[in-house]
């Protein structure tokens, strides 16, 4: 019983992140401050020559929208998925 209580339960909250890559200026705030480390710089460039973020670990997103609050260019935001239950 004790062992069960100490094991980490998987996150129940799920979210989805949306990125508008053509608006990004590559400051990297969303990547740096994402609490569940969902994002990373893409190897590709956008039209203006910036590396935009992409979701490398989309299943970890909890939809806290911290990326959306940090983004100075309104290029990214996340939403919490509604529970199917």
């Amino acid at each position: 019983m004790e062992k069960e209580s100490t094991t980490k339960t998987p996150p129940k909250i799920k979210g989805e992140v949306f990125i508008k890559k053509e608006r990004c200026k590559g400051c990297g705030f969303c990547i740096q401050f994402c609490p569940s480390k969902v994002l990373a710089f893409s190897k590709e460039f956008n039209e203006k020559g910036y590396h935009f973020p992409e979701a490398v670990n989309p299943d970890a997103c909890i939809g806290c929208n911290l990326c959306g609050l940090y983004c100075p260019d309104f290029a990214i935001f996340s939403v919490r998925e509604k529970k199917s239950k």
Binding site: K25, G26, C27, F29, Y50, G68, L69, Y70, C71, P72, D73, F74
Partner: peptide, 11 residues
């Protein structure tokens, strides 16, 4: 500029 904080404040 990229990295400026005014956009965050406006947000």
């Amino acid at each position: 500029c990229p990295g400026c904080g005014i956009g965050t404040a406006l947000n």
